[in-house]
Design a protein around this nucleic acid. Structure first.
Lengths: 237, 237
DNA sequence: CGAAAAATAATTGCATGCAATCCGTGCGAT
DNA sequence: ATCGCACGGATTGCATGCAATTATTTTTCG
């Protein structure tokens, strides 16, 4: 039980786990859009909020910078990342490459326990879908990404799972910036179909489903404005 | 000339560029085996060596920890990573997944300039191959990895290029630990063939070549000792 | 009144000091 | 002789202070 909360392995990073916890909180806030792209994250403010010194706050911001969720400018500060359209395309190109590989590996390794975890994940998604309010909306976004992280977890490759963690988080930023609809409610049904194919060990079917699923997510974005996009990002700072 | 040293984009990370330079030096030392797996990297020592304070040294070590090249234990210190056999398998599984994607993208985007860069890279490799001595050996290892980074660069996806940087560096560690022959001299010929296929925009051929190339690299490793491996890694610390 | 220059305020870069933690060692008890 | 335990050394964790840099505001001159 509670398997999904242990997706990310507690590896002892360079900084103490206090910085790590702050990073997790900030990341969570970023991916469910409580922190908008471009928002400033000063060391002092972060430190004061979590009651730690600037040293720890800086370490947390550094971690987020490595993940591409935060952009820092020398002697200027840290800001929530503002991914360009080109970056958005690259993120989804990467996902189109990696996720089919995850599906294939997951198909070969999936166990009954994993299937149960997937079903809990699906239930969680539909629970948030049927709820109202912005809080449920945020939880929905988070859960939608967690599905893909669970997939990476089942695939059993720690390294790819770490990559996916980064890609999913950055995808959330991209969706916040360029998404048309808030979230594609159709995504949930696609998740269900993917789980079904996985449970049946239908590699081919699951692969096709995940590809079209990623395509659908990207299709919901408005990435056709190269000029407007660069202008917008230039003014946004 | 010297184009390959500028492959990785100078992005302004959280820490100042002093830490970044130290990271680059340390990484270089790790991947060409001047620093053996398991070697201790104390903050004080690193700081003294580069004439900076522990703060900067710590930041550099943190970056390497994120890349998986260094493992840090709380209140104990930082050590050059000691990848397990399982990790080694996952690294190569990731490469088998990503590199074919890079090839396909590179095939579509490759320009004359890129082809020239590839040829310079190949020349560099053969130059080191024909040289003698441990120094040339190190340069050969480095160049062999740089080929794959150049491929990622030509593919034009910054995110995947970053992933590849991590994978290639960690591969170097794995080869140092589990490699049978020092370096597979046959790899160079395979690189040549891959470049030829890319230049001809032969997607299918290049894809097959890169897959068998990665397979060959992994086949040169001794990863068949699951029981001994876990014991060994447990005792090795 | 407008524009350039200088001072000011805010923020990060970096070094250092002290406290906390972990490991190894030696002593004593069983 | 072995196990438990306390002490000492070494290393990192973290907070803070000062210097450097950037952006902003004010001042001054044309």
């Amino acid at each position: 039980m509670d398997a999904k909360s242990e997706i990310s392995i507690e590896r002892d990073d360079g900084a103490g786990d206090r910085a790590q916890r702050i990073r997790d909180q900030l990341r969570h806030a970023i991916i469910d859009r409580r922190l908008a792209p471009g928002a400033k994250l000063s060391e002092q403010e972060v430190g004061a909020l979590f009651d730690v010194s600037r040293t720890v706050a800086k370490a947390a911001l550094q971690m987020l910078t490595f993940e591409g969720l935060v952009r820092t400018e020398r002697n200027r500060g840290a800001f929530v990342a503002n991914p360009s359209i080109e970056e958005a395309r690259q993120i989804f190109a990467s996902r189109r490459l990696i996720e089919p590989g995850l599906v294939q590996s997951a198909c070969a390794r999936i166990t009954e326990t994993d299937i149960a975890a997937f079903h809990r994940q699906l239930d969680e998604e539909s629970r948030h879908l049927s709820s109202r309010g912005p809080e449920a909306r945020r939880a929905e976004i988070k859960a939608s990404g967690d599905f893909h992280l669970l997939l990476a977890d089942v695939a059993g490759n720690t390294i790819l799972a770490k990559f996916m963690e980064e890609l999913v988080a950055r995808s959330s930023l991209v969706i916040a910036l360029y998404g048309r609809t808030g979230t594609s409610t159709c995504g949930h049904q696609e998740h269900r179909e993917i789980v079904n194919s996985l449970a049946n060990r239908d590699v081919e079917g699951a692969t096709k489903l995940i590809i079209s699923h990623v395509d659908h997510i990207e299709a919901d974005l408005d990435l056709k404005t190269p000029a407007q996009g660069s202008l917008r990002s230039a003014l946004m700072l």
